[in-house]
Design a protein around this nucleic acid. Structure first.
Lengths: 202, 202
DNA sequence: TAAAAAAATTTAGTTAAGTCAAAAAATGTT
DNA sequence: AACATTTTTTGACTTAACTAAATTTTTTTA
């Protein structure tokens, strides 16, 4: 742990005051009106909107609440590179020692939160129970899957979807007699530290 | 705009110190190591992790960067209700005066950012150019779509995907001879006061 | 198992920036 | 042009963001 590189050069906070202003105007509010709702002074709000001041997280939460959005909306996002994948060309990966296979649909966009996978679930496969931060949305394309979610259990067929917060313990299993396929999309950060094995296409 | 209810209930800032701690431990870092990387003192980091102190946005950005995640990861999220949709039961909606139809796959989870739609694109349909905050990911299920993205144009067939930031001006059109179908997923926030259908990218 | 080392927490501060109220300036309305 | 409304600026206050160092706790070592 020598020569630790500071993560940042004491940059400005990653807050876009312009987004607050745009939202306020879209809602047809004056500075005074919004400041009243958010419980801050009108002068400070003016400064925040013009990036001449930075609110604390608590104050930012109040602004978000008054404007009916979540805090993330105000966070400035860096520029990103787009990504396209081709159905005929995507490689399949497998978690180490697992028959589960998946294709990566999304890419790592700076500051992005979306991760999406095409998951191929063999007949009889059953996952372990897991939970983590972020949202998850499953779109079933083929087959039949039993999804547990907390104390609930859902049978999902092609066309069905399930949208839930990932911190609820959840698992899934292919209970049909054909391989199942789903599009899994999540907003948990990319913390996938598990080993991946590259498979040839079948 | 009278009797403005102050949003300030003297709440704690919406920060989950535990998430920072979990992430640090998962990365195998000591308090000292992470504080060095983030450029803050070890004592303060300890307090932040135990919710006994709140970092400024700038400091939070440094922590996020040092841990390789985005700020959103640390924001505490309220409890949510999960949602399931059935392929055979979902209603189709249309934008006013448009032949474009869509089904809602996701639900509104408090503090959530994920929105997902099944979009049915008639032959010959062409959308207007649009841009907005948030990420977008398209998974093509059927048909052929021409997607413009900034200066780029992509032909997307069944199985192809495209992942991009929504602030790049973009549009799409069905250029095939059969109806097209895509799963659209986005992280743009749900703006209060705006028609929900705005999210269908028109 | 005791001692040493490492890691985490607590404490007692400093200080700068978050935030204010009021004045001034800019903008909108009639 | 006069007035009202909205926004910005200004000069302050104060408190919490953040520190270094001491203390405690936990882990490692022999």
């Amino acid at each position: 742990m020598n020569d630790p590189k500071p993560a940042q050069d004491l940059e400005k906070p990653p807050l876009s005051g312009q987004r607050i202003r745009d939202l306020r105007r879209r809602a047809g509010l004056t500075l005074q009106a919004l400041s009243d709702q958010a419980g801050i002074s009108v002068g400070f709000l003016s400064q925040v909107e013009r990036d001449k001041g930075t609110p604390s997280l608590g104050t930012l939460a109040q602004l978000a609440s008054a404007l009916g959005v979540s805090i993330e909306y105000f966070i400035a996002t860096p520029k990103a590179n787009d990504s396209i994948t081709r159905g005929q060309e995507r490689e399949r990966f497998a978690i180490a020692d697992s028959s589960l296979q998946y294709e990566r649909l999304s890419t790592d966009l700076p500051g992005g939160t979306l991760t999406s996978l095409m998951i191929h679930i063999p007949v009889g496969y059953s996952s372990e129970l897991t939970s983590h931060a972020g949202e998850e949305l499953i779109v079933m394309l083929d087959g039949t899957v039993r999804q547990t979610l907390g104390d609930s259990t859902f049978i999902l067929n092609a066309g069905d979807t399930l949208h839930f917060m990932g911190d609820t313990p959840h698992s899934f299993a292919n209970i049909g007699d054909v391989p199942a396929r789903m599009v899994w999309t999540g907003t948990s950060p990319r913390l996938i530290g598990q080993k991946r094995t590259r498979l040839s296409r079948d």
